[in-house]
Nucleic acid binder design. Sequence first.
DNA 1: CCGAAGATTGCCT
DNA 2: GGCAATCTTCGGG
Length: 233
Amino acid sequence: MRQLDQRASWQLLPREFFERPSVEVAPDLLGCVISHSTAAGLVAVMLVEVEAYAGEADPASHAFRGRTARNAVMYGPPGHAYVYFTYGMHFCMNLVCQATGRASAVLLRAGRVTEGVPLARARRSGAARHPRDVDLARGPARLCEALGIDRSHDGADVIDPSSPLVLAPPTPVLADGISRGPRVGVSRAADVAWRFWIAGEPAVSPYRAHTPRKRAVAKPVTGRARGDGTMHQ
DNA sequence: CCGAAGATTGCCT
DNA sequence: GGCAATCTTCGGG
C-alpha cells in the first residue's frame, strides 16, 4: 500500500505528516507512540484507536460553529496538541491537522501503554482499583490520565524532539489490520465512519452510540428567591 | 446572566 | 444497562 510504504520510510515524523485532512492522518497515526516525560518518569502509549474531526465542515467537531477560546489551538499550526476538559473531570487530547487557519484534528481515543506501566497505573489508581494493563489507556480520558495530560498541554508541539510530549514514528501496521466505523458518543454526524482502530486489539474502547443525558431535576426556585434555609451553600 | 449539553467514566441495580 | 459525578463552554435571552 502506497501510504504504508511512505510512512514506513520516515525516520522522523515531519510536520507535513499533519498537514493533510484529518481523515487521512487518522489511520496513519495507528501504531505511532505518544510519550510524555515528567519528573515522575516517562509513559509511552502506542495508539490503537483514533477519530478524525473535520473542523467547521463537521457537525461533530468543536470547531463546527467557528473559532472560540477553547478550540483556538485547532486553528493553529499542525502537529500541536488540542486538549479540552469535559464532563467536569476529564481531559481529551487531539493532534491538530491541516495548515494554520484551518481547524481539523484527530482525537486519540485509546492506546496500549508500552513504557512506564507502573507510573501510568499510579496515575489511574484513584479511578480504578485494579485496572488491567490493557485498560490503562483504553478510552480518551483514560489515555490522558495515564499520560499525565491536562489543560497545561493544550497547544503543546508534539513534533519538537525536545518537547516532553512527543509523537514517535509508527511501528508499521498492516492496512488489512485497520478497521473503521462511526465515531463514539457523538450526537451529530453519528453515521460518519471516521473512527479507526487496529483490528483485534484489546485496548480499543467499546463502541457506544450517543445517549442524550437525562435532564437534571427542574429547579423549584430560581435566582434571588433562593434562601429558604433548606439548601446547602 | 442562565441554562443545557458535553468527542467520559465508573459504580450501582 | 442506567445513571451520577462535576464544571467548563457556549449559545440564547
